[in-house]
């Protein structure tokens, strides 16, 4: 997993709970990285799972909620760091459709070792989009957070219905209805 996810995660934790919480998470868990992350490095995905689960325990907040919040949080970083991707699309649907076809292609060019989820989008009508999430990491909630922020970015509104297609959450269908 790309280092930026870890650094951003710690940023968010520090923002909400202070660096003390970040220090606790590092001290309380066996991390092969010893909690030392750089945005350009690559780290074991399991460390993230460990950190999220421990944070859930410490803050008594369910994991999905945490992932959702994290998704929303990291959107801001993307928005600031990669504005050209947002400018390339005129509205939220176009943007969501461009993730798989365009943004992830570009990311792969920059980080050939990045492991990215797959998305399959189907425009059901002018106001309905079906978006299916595929990933062994099962971080659909994280994706949902990003999707929600996308509509905010384009100043649009939508209701998003979630349907798990597998038990472990590796395939999740989002039915997005623009309002």
């Amino acid at each position: 997993m790309k280092g930026i996810v870890f650094t951003e995660f710690f940023e968010m934790v520090e923002d909400v709970h202070g660096y003390q919480m970040v220090d606790q998470l590092i001290m309380d868990n066996e991390l092969s990285s010893k909690g030392i992350y750089t945005t350009i490095g690559t780290y074991d995905h399991k460390e993230m799972v460990t950190l999220v689960v421990d944070l859930s325990k410490k803050t008594k907040t369910p994991v999905p909620n945490l992932l959702n919040a994290f998704g929303q949080y990291i959107f801001g970083t993307f928005e600031k760091g990669y504005p050209m991707f947002f400018e390339a699309s005129a509205n939220a649907f176009d943007f969501l459709e461009s993730i798989e076809a365009y943004i992830h292609v570009e990311v792969k060019k920059l980080y050939p070792d990045a492991q990215l989820p797959k998305f399959k989008t189907t425009r059901l009508s002018d106001t309905r989009l079906e978006m299916i999430y595929y990933s062994d990491r099962s971080m659909a909630d994280f994706a949902l957070g990003l999707i929600e922020k996308t509509f905010e970015h384009y100043e649009e509104k939508a209701t998003i219905t979630r349907e798990d297609l597998t038990e472990n959450g590796s395939e999740v269908k989002f039915l997005i209805q623009k309002v």
Binding site: Y19, Q20, D23, I26
Partner: peptide, 27 residues
């Protein structure tokens, strides 16, 4: 306790910088 945390944080950040420098040099 806070001092320890800070010390650890500085250490971690120094380590992270070194790691980043190594990666950058390699790159």
């Amino acid at each position: 306790n806070e001092v320890d945390i800070l010390k650890r944080r500085i250490l971690r950040e120094r380590m992270a910088r070194k790691e980043a420098e190594t990666i950058l040099e390699k790159k």
